[in-house]
Nucleic acid binder design. Structure first.
Lengths: 153, 153
DNA sequence: TGGAGGTAGTTAAGATTTGAACGACTTACG
DNA sequence: CGTAAGTCGTTCAAATCTTAACTACCTCCA
């Protein structure tokens, strides 16, 4: 009844459970730090980071949604909130009047910098520093492959 | 301006970005499968799984919340929904009248079994089969350590 | 031209989640 | 005992997220 020929084996189960738990808990930790240090959700942070990395600090809503891995309607909501907080600005796009630029304001850049040290600390203390350099490389390679494979479907 | 002495290095960044993306995308995939195969959210599924693993198929709300990694108030909502769907039943706890048992019904067990093959398929195809056996072990060890460390804080 | 069909972003309604506060009960300790 | 402090699960309001339209615009091709 509880045995099943194609259930996951112990090694597989350990990897899967570990992955699930680590993802959950780490996200929790990050969410907490970002909220405490700058009143941002993890989603908001990802949006700001993508914008900060983009040329001219701006991206069209669609591209931003894809890069930050959020739905379009969720991004609409998020950007509205971020705009209300003065961290992002919406701008009309000349070349395609359907499009809208989401652009990082100076305030937005500042908010990002304010929150980043704590964010790095969490990532380091909770993940990076817990792994050996070998584990770090294996994990990086393996999970990048996993993600790429999921993206191309 | 964008350079920072204690920013993550390339290997670290790859591991972190890979982890973040893999977690996001895999969760998305699972959410989709569970919804399609049985109308369950990933959260609901986790709740049912923990109950199925527990002796007598039941757990107190608090323990269930801890094991399924959800907040108490979220669990209250979830269990109410699952109860409405007939998959879970609430029972009074004799030994501690503050507590409430959440108990898997036969229907709940059936719903779980119905959805499990697809779930396993997703986990295998998206994660397990993408990794070499060595990667699987390294990942399992490393992430279990990461999770344990985060749990004990 | 003039649509057909696709894309960009928003909206509205409903579902879910959060976080603080609450009532009921238990436990520990003076 | 009797009460202070803690735990258990729920509730409520507010915040957030999802889904399915919907408007406006762009592209392509007859």
């Amino acid at each position: 009844m509880s045995d099943d020929p194609d259930a996951l084996g112990p090694r597989e189960l350990r990897a899967w459970m570990g992955f699930l738990a680590a993802a959950h808990l780490l996200d929790h930790e990050i969410e907490h730090q970002l909220k405490a240090d700058g009143g941002l959700s993890h989603g908001d942070f990802e949006v700001l980071v993508r914008l900060a990395m983009a040329p001219d600090g701006r991206l069209r809503m669609s591209d931003l949604a894809r890069e930050a891995m959020v739905s379009k309607s969720r991004l609409t909501y998020q950007v509205t909130q971020l705009e209300r907080a003065g961290l992002v600005r919406r701008t009309a796009c000349e070349s395609d009047r359907r499009s809208v630029w989401a652009e990082l304001t100076d305030e937005g850049r500042a908010a990002l910098e304010k929150v980043r040290p704590g964010h790095r600390r969490v990532v380091r203390e909770s993940l990076i520093d817990v792994l050996t350099p070998e584990e770090l490389d294996v994990l990086g390679g393996a999970l990048t492959r996993v993600a790429d494979r999921l993206r191309s479907r």
